[in-house]
Design a binder for these strands. Structure first.
Lengths: 220, 220
DNA sequence: CCGAATCCTGTCCGATACTG
DNA sequence: CAGTATCGGACAGGATTCGG
């Protein structure tokens, strides 16, 4: 009468896979990392997921203690899905696995990216050493929401929302943004092409771009 | 004509899941983390995996550039499966995800554990702060192989094989070992019960045990 | 004995259609 | 808007069998 298929393995890692190893589960967690979302929002941000699968995954994640339902605040009525404290703690595994994945010999850059994925990518590619002495506060206006990026004391902070007084504000979509930040040459093609708009100190954006390492495949 | 099912997502993390997100894939990587194994060895260490599934996973991991086939050295004839450099780099994600999993509200400790899983668990539960000033070298003789554990300068090293002159040698199975190390009270029940045998400096084992935090569920 | 290919069965996934 | 119902197809699991 085992409800779920299990590896039946004492390893904590394997038991985690029993909980989040199903298809789409970790991508749902990824999308919720920056705040609660409604069912339909999740569907939009996860192109390709079937609604019944999303229902199952949310139920499973809730049972596992990773996701919980919350009442939507303010004007909107209805419920949404949020991460529990333990669910939010998955940000670190997400960051580390993303960093590992960026060394894949077959990583492709031409596919679309959700805002949450892009913001987590920043954490993955951030390089402490390159950030020594850097202090910047840049706000992003992405189609799916605003994010405040700050680098200070060798640490990167990525939070949803806005900063009171950003040094620089970038508007556009996340694919163009990452292309600029990782290309090593900010202010280049994407800006010229008009897919990104920058207000404020462009040098601060360049400084931010300098704190990321470019994804590079690991050979052997 | 898509050969493989894909999330078709630009996120490096999602693309990693395309490669290693299938059932059993990451557990195969886990088992290979401390050295090459043959097909049959893998089957033994992954109770429950079907042989055809193992075949498929190995083929997929090889295609992804995570695993490669090697000729078995020395006396044994035949081939074995080893991790590539990039595959070995997965040790860090494994460690971090294990640490996250150890905070699961529903982690069970009574299930059997492979030697590789136990050794990775040590990395997950290691606590830099607790290890300040600690310097120990302990050798383990587990049923599936020998491992050399060293703590020095706030760092933990877990390697397959033996140390020339260990301060302490523990023989027994990995489940009993972890119970002793994480219980906070080494030298207690398991040793008394004779499931573990210790030669050398028992205090060094206690010192080692003091560098690990006990798994504790995160609430909320 | 090792490594793998071949059945067959059951479960899970994916897509569409439909309902409170 | 937020899911449920349904169904075909893909994939996992187990046993057996076959070639080194």
């Amino acid at each position: 009468m085992d409800r779920k298929r299990s590896y039946d393995d004492g390893c904590a890692f394997a038991q985690a896979l029993d909980l989040v190893g199903e298809r789409w589960a970790l991508l749902v967690v990824r999308e919720l990392m920056f705040g609660p979302l409604r069912f339909t929002d999740l569907r939009e941000r996860l192109p390709g997921i079937a609604s019944n699968v999303l229902t199952q995954r949310l139920a499973g994640l809730e049972e596992a203690g990773i996701v919980r339902q919350v009442d939507l605040p303010r004007p909107a009525r209805g419920k949404a899905y949020a991460l529990t404290a333990w669910g939010k703690a998955f940000r670190e595994p997400l960051r580390v696995m993303g960093a590992w994945a960026s060394a894949s010999p077959q990583l492709r850059f031409d596919k679309p990216l959700s805002a949450a994925a892009a913001m987590l990518s920043l954490s993955s590619m951030f390089d402490r050493d390159k950030a020594a002495g850097v202090s910047v506060a840049v706000d992003l206006r992405l189609p799916d929401g605003d994010f405040a990026i700050r680098v200070e004391g060798g640490c990167l902070s990525v939070e949803p929302g806005r900063t009171p007084d950003p040094q620089c504000v970038v508007s556009g979509d996340q694919n163009a943004l990452l292309a600029v930040l990782y290309a090593g040459k900010p202010g280049s093609t994407a800006l010229a092409a008009g897919t990104l708009a920058v207000e404020g100190d462009l040098d601060k954006l360049a400084e931010l771009a300098g704190t990321f390492r470019a994804p590079e495949p690991m050979l052997g």
